[in-house]
Write a protein that binds this DNA or RNA. Structure first.
Lengths: 208, 208
DNA sequence: GAATGAAGTGAACCACTGTTCAGAGCATCA
DNA sequence: TGATGCTCTGAACAGTGGTTCACTTCATTC
């Protein structure tokens, strides 16, 4: 006889899948892609290794899903800040960098996974796309700044790439753990913001 | 009876080791760490897989040696430029960035391997050290620039990290191959130099 | 030229992981 | 409640790639 899944059943399945993705994300944030074996992820989610394949056709597919979700969250947040309608392009740029950096500092493991941790090729490809989206967002604001006469003429794409690279590099080292006294996060943020503005060529604020 | 290696024999051995390292470097530059299996490297050097273990205790040891050599070459070149005695700190910084970038563009595969390509943990650790050395060099010049009143007050370490990150990010994308029309290298270099100077806060050159 | 010992070989070994699959456990339907 | 079909399990399987080792090859010594 036709066997039809009940609504509750479907919900339960989706919840299981959801839980799997969340646990996988956590594992990846904690130990990196390389150490996040199917077994480790399944254990974290409290299911058997084989059950992973009920939800995803392969480990790579799960990894990509994990990356996409986390990356999209970040891109969305950044987009919201950069495209907000209040403040000059330069002010938005500053806020964007701060948000980018603050979020990374608040979830270092995840930031490291998104930005730098060694990963299998499929995730690597996803990461390239992630970076492109970041570039596009920053490039947009830089362009607005140029058009508004607030920033000097420059290749927005290059500046945008530099901004993500700069912030990433500054963050990743502290992220990777080992660093002398560990600089105060707020100082780091202020320093980064100033750096980003110089990078884009914004004039130092004139006194009020 | 005591068996003593003749001088020629010793030389031959060292040459073989040398050749192995060079071939491995080339393989890595061409296909990345992940694809550079012991077999592939041995094939490239024209020896059997097992013979690799005459020269190195493990694949990781060989990989580290490959990385160290290439990285040291780059660090040395950069150090020479940045520490040269002619030109202001700002001018040296500009030249340093150009040299860094130009060398990367001239050997994209190797640059990618050094800066970004996924690698086993032992190489990853080496890469952190490599980056630290870059940071230290840039930080030194930035500090000189500040002391000379040419650059605004700033955290040299952060700026230095940003410079390597920025240059790396800008280069790695083009490096990774896929990019629309592929920007002219000279334009890219000019753009990068300008960006680096802004990044450090150097005033735009006043007219002559 | 025979004895000796190191370098070099490459097939076999082994550890590690992603993936499969036959069966157990349950929910659904008649 | 029994029949059916789905989910879940976890041990077995398979591909990969680093490492080993019995053996060959070749240089050295007497």
């Amino acid at each position: 006889m036709a066997y039809r899944k009940t609504a509750a059943e479907v919900r339960r399945l989706e919840a299981a899948r959801e839980r799997l993705v969340e646990c996988a994300t956590q594992v990846v944030a904690e130990v990196g892609w390389a150490q996040a074996s199917v077994t480790a992820v399944a254990d974290a989610a409290g299911i058997a290794a084989g059950s992973v394949y009920q939800h995803f056709p392969s480990k790579a597919a799960l990894a990509v899903e994990v990356f996409r979700r986390a990356a999209s969250r970040e891109v969305d947040v950044l987009a919201e800040v950069l495209r907000s309608t209040d403040g000059s392009p330069v002010q938005r740029l500053a806020r964007g960098v701060q948000v980018f950096a603050r979020r990374a500092l608040e979830n270092r493991g995840l930031a490291h996974a998104l930005l730098a941790a060694p990963a299998e090729p499929s995730v690597g490809a996803e990461r390239l796309d992630f970076r492109r989206r970041y570039h596009a967002l920053f490039a947009e604001v830089v362009r607005e700044g140029i058009d508004a006469g607030l920033l000097p003429r420059q290749d927005g794409q290059v500046t945008a790439a530099a901004l993500t690279g700069a912030v990433g590099e500054v963050l990743v080292d502290p992220l990777g753990a080992g660093r002398t006294p560990a600089p105060d996060p707020e100082d780091l943020l202020a320093e980064l913001t100033a750096l980003a503005l110089r990078c884009a060529g914004a004039r130092p604020e004139s006194p009020p």
